[in-house]
Amino acid sequence: MILLPCPNCGPRDEGEFTYGGPQRQLPSLDGQSGTDDWLKALFHPQNPRGPMVELWYHASGCEAWIEVTRDTGTHEIIDVATNRLRDDKQ
């Protein structure tokens, strides 16, 4: 059971969210990215035992995509952010 601290709504049960998978970096679209870059980006998600940034969609709440830093070995939530919160911090 994961209690996700949604930045907009507060702590909410995992059942309110849709999982969006590990965060990934897409290759640039300037024509410089090769087949290997796209292969890695599309098929090789990060899969660490430990802290990982991932995306959750708060479907039954604020309907925002949330970046959650979670330890995959313990389910401990280390950090949460939304795009807007992150931009405000910078």
């Binding site: 059971m1 994961i2 998978g21 035992r49 991932e54 995959t72 389910h75």
Partner: peptide, 13 residues
């Protein structure tokens, strides 16, 4: 369980 995990510990969901 629907999300990445090595915990071998499930959710009631």
């Amino acid at each position: 369980d629907g999300y990445a995990s090595f915990a071998r510990r499930g959710s009631f969901e």
